[in-house]
Design a protein around this nucleic acid. Structure first.
Lengths: 212, 212
DNA sequence: TAGATTGTTAATCGATTAACAATC
DNA sequence: TAGATTGTTAATCGATTAACAATC
């Protein structure tokens, strides 16, 4: 029984399921029960079954889940087979790190453009991708219609840049700047990766432990 | 009335409050109401007051919150004034990006050591920090007692490394590897930054929009 | 068949929202 | 004083857990 609305807690667990199942699959495990899977992820068996139940019936009573089948279902749910195109804005240290090391294909993303305002970087080839000037973004958008924009610009023009990209038809923004981006357009999805918040959370929890 | 237990949803909002208030403070705003603040963050006024209520009474009836005072309180709650020391393991692209560009001081973190197994990197100075060999970690831990370890190693030794660090008295692990780290020791806090999950979530939400 | 395990409904738990007395 | 806004209790909403019939 597929559900129409999927809650955020469920969505946030999907990638964790996928990574875990993908790994099991790679190590040749062919079958797993909700309780075994829940243990690997620190969840309850009930929750695992509820979560999957949002999308359909993937298991078999008395048997459990077929690992390769479950992996394929999760790939489908997450849309990893659609191969979304992406551009990256900002090829400094962080941008370069992503271009060179990040496993985009694992997420079904294909990086097709890299842009930077620094003339020293323009023309440089990173992992097969030639860095272009910022000024070319507009034309590139019009021609190639990338779906996702990755913001690894250091400053805080993120909001303005996001609005421009929205105008030009971007569908998703993966934002690494210090500022959260807010886009009204319901067609544009924003994923803010605020590393400051993550480290502050760590700091909070460490200090919490110190005082208790 | 301070609460003994703080729930995760509340904790996750604390850094967002802090960043927002810090910015208001920097732009000279001296006073804000829960409803104005809630609007800036996309929350409800009720929630803002409930959240703050977990830690004490920071506002004034009929007036609202004094911005500099609230900022100081949040700093205190998050423990940003304690200046925790940190080391970073892995000085490749991502490690380098953090060392050079990340605003550690904003989070009250002081980076005191950088390590890498690559002999080509050892000895290089990054933002005033000299890269040391992996082999020196043990001695460094014993001598300097860093509180936080940042894992920017590319591979998947994260779990073993984490257990070693735990043995040597680390208190917090900020993990950027592809693998989630799980540490049993209740004295050690782990913050997993799984960028793959973040991008898969974005992919899911984009595809969700496409099918609806 | 008997044992295992799902899918799903019902019960519980926790988080968010609403409401309002207190008071600046 | 009157208006505004907090802190906090109560009401609602949503997510997690428990339970169990269905069935492989």
């Amino acid at each position: 029984m597929k559900k129409a609305y999927i809650s955020n807690p469920v969505i946030s667990r999907l990638p964790r399921y996928y990574r875990c199942i993908e790994q099991l699959c790679a190590s040749g495990v062919s079958r797993i029960s909700s309780s075994a899977l829940s243990e690997l992820l620190g969840l309850t068996a009930s929750q695992v079954r509820q979560d999957f139940g949002c999308f359909g019936e993937f298991g078999q009573k008395g048997y459990g889940y077929n690992v390769p089948k479950l992996r394929d279902e999760l790939r489908e749910i997450l849309g990893l087979s659609r191969e979304l195109t992406a551009i990256i804005l900002g090829c400094g240290n962080l941008g370069r790190a992503l271009i060179n090391n990040f496993d985009f294909s694992f997420c079904g993303i294909r990086l097709i453009g890299a842009f930077d305002p620094d003339p020293q970087l323009v023309g440089e080839v990173m992992n097969g991708l030639t860095v272009r000037d910022y000024g070319e973004v507009h034309a590139f958008m019009a021609e190639e219609h990338p779906v996702v924009a990755i913001l690894t610009v250091p400053g805080s023009q993120s909001q303005i840049v996001s609005e421009l990209l929205t105008h030009e038809g971007i569908r998703g923004i993966w934002n690494f700047t210090q500022q959260e981006v807010q886009v009204d357009d319901p067609n544009v999805v924003v994923e803010n990766v605020i590393l400051l918040d993550s480290l502050m959370t760590l700091s909070y929890k460490i200090n919490e432990g110190l005082s208790v």
